[in-house]
Design a binder for these strands. Structure first.
Lengths: 337, 337
DNA sequence: CTAGCATGAGCAAACGATTGATCACGCAGG
DNA sequence: CCTGCGTGATCAATCGTTTGCTCATGCTAG
């Protein structure tokens, strides 16, 4: 790789002259002739500034870390796309770190944040993220933005309109004539879970339908938990005729469990889920969902961490554009007679 | 962030002593007492070596780039997991770059490889990767390993047993009694496509079944192309009773198209696909697939690029462990009478 | 009594880029 | 003849680590 001094040698000038010309420094008092010789030399050598040297000089890497609980999560890919696009637009690159599946003694997060590899971190908190690592993140001096969860301390956050989304899902079922509607939520510790539950409750209250405590489960967003939640709900007497699932992954588990129990969807049980991953349309039956602006969430997150890095501004953003959209497919229908 | 000189000041010694002690240099002639003072100081300050400084000194970043065509591809996540795990084991981090969707004038790949950000690159060639960028990659001096495609020039590669996998899928259909079996392949330019087609042909030849040219399509691995391919096959007279799909994503598209055409799967048409993404079990009906060792492919790719970086060894590896496994679900059955 | 050596530690250059300070030179004004 | 100044370029320090070399000290052997 060509360095500044290679270019300088070829152009017959000093390193500093080259640096000033190539970075368009206003303090560059350079003759037209010299300027052209430098530019030609740089061109011919294919000069590109060394990343490490710049990072060392400026204490700035133009890289942000993205910490996600689980790569196989379908909603993550949309988020990631948004982050990537916005990062690219701002001259940043994304260093991916997975929080899941790391052996206990491992230290991938300290390595990420402690060695000056990144200028900031985007964190999507998963159910299984170690509080220890989280603590380290928030305590440190590194800019952090939480995606889809609000952290009490001094970190910024970017969230979706969870409540509005769940309200939309619930109103769809109510509109179909359901009254005994159950809810499959995330773990109580997750704060999206709380907001989503509130959306559900609000819609039910507006319609004048009671919400039985038995009808609320809070087992988690993953397929396995969704299955367990559905099993619990299916055992109730009388059985709910519809279920609002707070996450599409959990909905897949619920669907599987329903099939196992011999419940037909949607004839015996309607199912509507939050987040429109592409897996939803390939489900059996295709899932009715509420599409949330995950791509825009990713972009907003990257924009927020950028602001945080460059100006220190801490902000809590709610991404409301585009608004949640109901994607009606085949997992919902009017209740059985 | 604490630096070496912070630690040195606190321990009352020189920077070099600290460096030698903390990096366990054999040339460190240091008294027991000094050693302990240094270690304590480092501990208390939470010292971590600065990434940029090391990278500058060694011309080594311990980061590899991973270039993928499309993040939303379900099989990519398994691959990525493998890459990540192996990278982590070897003290590497992964910088993700998406090749898809970049505006024409953009230069994310040159930025990745030209500025010394990464020690090597893993490339999964997609159908829409710009040959221009590819060329740059191969021409450069940076270690490159191609994943799932063999490049004629001096780059290494890591591939799966595509032929064996397709053979397994085809034999499953043959075992069920099918004889008019069609094939939905990738673009002719992709070299996995060729290997997979050969596996299909070999299995058909072994069983003594003819392969009509009409029964071979090569439209691509994505859902849309899979749908188009199925539409073409469904119009044939007599219609094939089963289809081997060279990629699970294409199979989803084919499934959708079959439904649209009023063909029942598997009653009217059996479908078996390569790659067991988790989307397969959530399809309608759940797809019979051949599970390939994608996670291990990712690990092997990372191992190969590591060897390439550290020893310069160029190797072409075929990942055959674990062997392809047939996952029988509900998209295949004996042919209609 | 001094040369020789082992021990423990610091000095300084290097990696590549940036940038404030400095220098050489030609020329005009006093 | 000397001072002052504008122009065009270079010098040198800096970021944090690493590492070959040097240095000071104390001890032993001749």
């Amino acid at each position: 790789m060509a360095t500044l001094s290679d270019v300088a040698a070829r152009a017959g000038v000093s390193v500093s002259a080259v640096s000033r010309v190539l970075s368009d420094a206003p303090s560059a008092r350079v003759s037209e002739d010299t300027r052209r010789r430098i530019q030609d030399a740089a061109q011919e050598l294919g000069y590109r500034p060394n990343f490490a040297a710049r990072a060392l000089k400026f204490s700035r890497t133009n890289v942000v870390g993205l910490i996600v609980p689980d790569l196989t999560n379908a909603i993550f890919t949309e988020l990631m796309r948004g982050v990537e696009d916005e990062a690219h637009r701002r001259g940043y690159m994304v260093l991916l770190a997975r929080a899941e599946g790391m052996p206990e003694g491992e230290e991938s997060i300290p390595r990420l944040i402690g060695e000056g590899r990144v200028d900031g971190v985007l964190v999507q908190v998963g159910d299984h993220m170690r509080p220890h690592d989280l603590q380290k993140l928030v305590e440190g001096t590194l800019p952090v933005v939480f995606v889809n969860s609000i952290h009490p301390q001094r970190a910024g956050s970017v969230v979706l309109e969870d409540e509005a989304g769940m309200r939309l899902a619930t109103e769809h079922l109510i509109g179909l004539g359901h009254t005994r509607i159950a809810f499959i939520g995330g773990l109580p510790s997750s704060d999206t879970s709380e907001r989503r539950e509130q959306g559900f409750r609000a819609a039910m209250a507006d319609a004048g339908h009671a919400v039985d405590d038995d009808h609320l489960t809070r087992l988690g967003y993953d397929p396995r938990s969704g299955g367990a939640a559905l099993a619990r709900l299916a055992a109730l007497e009388p059985r709910p005729t519809a279920v609002v699932v707070a996450n599409v992954n959990a909905a897949h588990g619920a669907l599987l469990e329903a099939r196992r129990l011999g419940l037909r969807v949607p004839e015996d049980l309607s199912l509507v889920a939050m987040h429109d991953a592409w897996t939803a349309e390939n489900a059996w039956p295709p899932l009715t969902t509420v599409r949330m602006p995950l791509y825009e969430l990713g972009r907003a997150a990257m924009a927020a961490i950028f602001d945080r890095i460059t100006s220190g501004a801490v902000s809590d953003v709610t991404v409301s554009e585009p608004a949640p959209v109901l994607m009606v497919r085949e997992s919902t229908s009017p209740p059985p007679a």
